[in-house]
């Protein structure tokens, strides 16, 4: 078991954005995480990445308890993540952005630069372009490149493929496949079912902070609870 998150909750005041969610991921998997907006997916990712302290629950990664560890400790342990709203280092070039990631496992500048160059090439970015001049799709790609350079064993992708044109989407799916083939385990949050269907064999459905269904993509799209979560009660009644 690579990742084991048990009974994770996160409360903001009285409101529980994540309410007792479980997730286990085997090394080598690609797991999909879907659910309506506001379901708590990003907050759950934040808990897994150490970005917010969960209110309850435990997070084990490769046997080590990371529940209360800082985000940088998560990164060192091998959990990488992207942000739903991309946060690139805008004053720096694409290459420098990726080098920041690369430095985690390559402390020397020349090693880090070499490693970053390879990753930039792999992701199809232009090394000397200022990050500031990238559009949102470019930024999302740069975030993937940056975290990939930090050598994660588990990658949490938060809507990294949202807002792409169909052509870009195909390229991005291919990129995620490449990353997976490199031996990186992936949990991906995505709204586009096409992406989920092509990339994942196992999907968890989030609603109101907890997992309401899981299974193969084909199974969950037929699940009553899932349809209700997405379409509301009325939809279900109509179908009946």
């Amino acid at each position: 078991m690579l990742l084991e998150a048990r009974d994770v909750s996160k409360a903001f005041g009285d409101f529980r954005a994540v309410a007792g969610a479980d997730l286990t991921v085997e090394a080598g998997e690609i797991v999909g995480l879907i659910g309506p907006n506001g379901a708590g997916k990003s907050t759950f990712f934040n808990c897994l990445a150490g970005d917010t302290l969960p209110t309850t629950g435990r997070i084990l990664f490769d046997g080590a308890d990371l529940t209360r560890a800082a985000p940088e400790a998560h990164a060192r342990a091998g959990i990488g993540r992207t942000f739903q709203v991309p946060t690139t280092f805008d004053d720096m070039s694409v290459l420098a952005n990726v080098m920041v990631g690369a430095f985690l496992r390559h402390p020397h500048r020349n090693d880090a630069r070499e490693h970053a160059r390879r990753i930039v090439e792999l992701t199809g970015l232009r090394a000397d372009q200022p990050a500031r001049s990238l559009g949102t799709p470019g930024r999302k790609r740069l975030e993937i490149a940056r975290v990939l350079a930090s050598g994660p064993r588990l990658l949490l992708l938060d809507e990294s493929l949202a807002g792409l044109t169909p052509g870009e989407l195909q390229a991005a799916i291919a990129l995620v496949r490449r990353i997976h083939q490199m031996g990186v385990t992936i949990v991906i949050v995505e709204h586009i079912m096409e992406v989920i269907m092509t990339l994942t064999r196992r999907v968890l459905v989030f609603n109101q902070g907890r997992v309401i269904a899981s299974g193969t993509p084909e199974q969950v799209v037929r699940d009553e609870a899932v349809i209700e979560a997405y379409l509301g009660r009325g939809a279900r009644r109509q179908r009946e």
């Binding site: 800082a70 990488g80 280092f89 975290v147 930090s150």
Partner: peptide
């Protein structure tokens, strides 16, 4: 961005 920096270790 401190947040992004921390996420990269």
């Amino acid at each position: 961005s401190e947040r992004a920096a921390r996420s990269l270790g």
